[in-house]
Simulated scan of single mutants.
Amino acid sequence: MSRLFEELDYAPTPIGAISLRRRHILSLKTDVFEILLGEEHLMSSLFTASEIALAEKGLAALKGNRLDVLVGGLGLGYTARAVLQDERLNALDVVDLLEPVIRWHREGLVPMKTELADDPRCRLVHGDFFALAASQDGFDRERPGRRYDAVLIDIDHTPERLLHGGSKGFYTPLGFESVQRFLKPGGIMGLWSDEAPDDAITDLLAGAFDEAWAEPVVFQNPLQDGREVTQAVYLGRKT
């Protein structure tokens, strides 16, 4: 059996100290990996349904093959891995502000070990997603102005509950329109939220995209006797 608790890494970042830890939950007989920013929980390997749904629902809305995809926010990597499982994928860029998170994937400290770092289709990029979205050149330094079939964002808890001040001003029609510059015609922007669908957020997307909708993601919480939890994926399509 694993240790009941182990801190795998701890590192300072520009927005505070971040840590990766592993806990063994006796009642479930399983190890759970968690990322914390200070005392705030960012992600757990026990709850990944909506992170995976962000990739699956976002890519399901796309037509064609040889898809180029950008994921904003790496975390434990479940959104990125779900993108890589789509057989139509050509290339995946994953942008994360926190260098230690990228290092954990390269060193194999996360549950999926070095799976993402080893995949030749996947590039892990250290950068500020929101600053890059607002820039003239976009997300690819080697190919300024590069456009993607999908941009999938899993960074803040919700548009109202921000991880840090760097995303302030992004969740507006103007902020969403900045991303559209780097989407191909018919491309999709996806947005993750750890709360149930909110019409106000869908309406906000509709103010910037030609088509916008919300997808509920329902799963059971094993720590609360299977109580159902509802989170959301928001999608906007550029025509």
Results as ranks from 00 to 15, higher is better:
Ala17Trp: 05
His105Asp: 10
Arg22Val: 05
Ser193His: 03
Glu40His: 08
Tyr10Ala: 13
Ile201Glu: 04
Leu124Arg: 03
Ala133Val: 07
Gly187Met: 08
Val151Met: 11
Arg88Leu: 10
Gly16Asn: 02
Ser27Thr: 06
Glu34Ile: 12
Leu98Arg: 03
Leu89Ile: 14
Arg146Leu: 13
His105Tyr: 08
Leu28Arg: 04
Asp210His: 10
Met189Cys: 13
Ile102Phe: 02
Gly165Met: 01
Arg23Pro: 00
Arg66Asn: 15
Gln220Cys: 12
Leu54Phe: 07
His41Trp: 00
Leu74His: 02
Pro159Asp: 11
Gly190Asp: 13
His126Thr: 05
Pro197Gly: 10
Ala11Tyr: 00
Ala91Tyr: 01
Tyr148Phe: 15
Asp31Trp: 00
Ile18Ser: 05
Arg22Met: 09
Gly73Phe: 00
Gly166Leu: 13
Ala61Asn: 05
Asp9Val: 02
Gly169Trp: 07
Gln231Asn: 14
Pro100Asn: 11
Gly64Cys: 07
Gly38Val: 05
Gly165Arg: 10
Ala200Arg: 15
Glu34Asn: 07
Thr114Asp: 05
Ala134Cys: 09
Gly145Ser: 05
Pro185Gln: 11
Thr172Ser: 14
Arg103Ala: 15
Glu40Val: 13
Ile18Arg: 11
Arg146Lys: 15
Leu191Lys: 06
Leu97Phe: 15
Lys168Val: 15
Thr114His: 06
Gln136Asn: 12
Leu62His: 04
Lys238Val: 12
Val101Cys: 07
Leu204Glu: 12
Met1Gly: 12
Asp194Glu: 09
Gly166Ala: 11
Leu204Gly: 11
His24Gln: 04
Pro185Asn: 11
Asp140Arg: 06
Ala91Phe: 03
Pro173Leu: 07
Asp210Asn: 07
Ala200Met: 01
Arg66Ser: 14
Lys184Phe: 04
Arg88Met: 10
Gly16Asp: 06
Ala80Pro: 01
Leu183His: 11
